[in-house]
Amino acid sequence: MTESRRYRPKLAVWKFSSCDGCQLSLLSCEDDLLAINDAVEIAYFLEATRARSDGPYDLSLVEGSITTPEEERRIRDVRDQSRFLVTIGACATAGGIQALRNFGDSEEYKRAVYAHPEYIETLQRSTPISHAVPVDFELRGCPVNKHQILELINATLNGRKSNIPTHSECMECKRRGTVCVMVARGMPCLGPVTQAGCGGLCPATHRGCYGCFGPCVDPNTAALANQFAGLGLSPRQVRHAFHGFNAWAEPFRTEGDAHD
């Protein structure tokens, strides 16, 4: 640690509606966890510690989507206490898989799952954090890539721009030397409209990308949907391809809605 940086910025990790996987990705930075703890003060991170120190926080990482009135209130508190607020993962950034309920009748969903739906106080929709409060940066992924979390913390500490690309997943596949599964195997793949960041995992595992990282910059979803139809997908299958883990992200939502 250099002498020049004695101040340890305060890091807080917050959870809303989610599976915990993105927070866990941070805990999965096993080699760097102790270094992170040296470099920042972990001021609030319930999954890891009982200790809590009060805000304001220099960097807040927010996992999960907003699905209850209580969460709507709580995210405003978090925003008020946070200098830099970064959402981590598809739930916080796009509403997550639970946003699939946004396409149905959420009252009916409650009745389907719960014996006493009248007790369930939830919002009609699962929405991203940015719908409730201003967000400084969004990290994509279901889950986030732990290297991107590290890169973000690292860049923030060192006062530089983080290396988080917004281009298509195809770039990662090609840099990695993965053979395109759509061209060589006829598998539908969301890679051409999905933001890079995972490392190109699915095509390297011989399956099409299913869009964990949400839409890339300028996605031409209609052209890809047309190609999917050419590969033999039914309209329902095309809809479900777009209505996955980032279904409520606008380009995917609209494209899925166009195929009934």
Partner: peptide, 30 residues
């Protein structure tokens, strides 16, 4: 912890999607 309605949102999805969707119930034991 708010409910996320997994059983409801699985309805109408293809059998093949169940592993990937239900994995998202839990990031610790997918």
């Amino acid at each position: 912890e708010p409910p996320r309605f997994f059983e409801a949102l699985l309805r109408g999805r293809s059998f093949g999607e169940a592993p990937d969707i239900t994995a998202r119930i839990c990031g610790i034991c997918p």
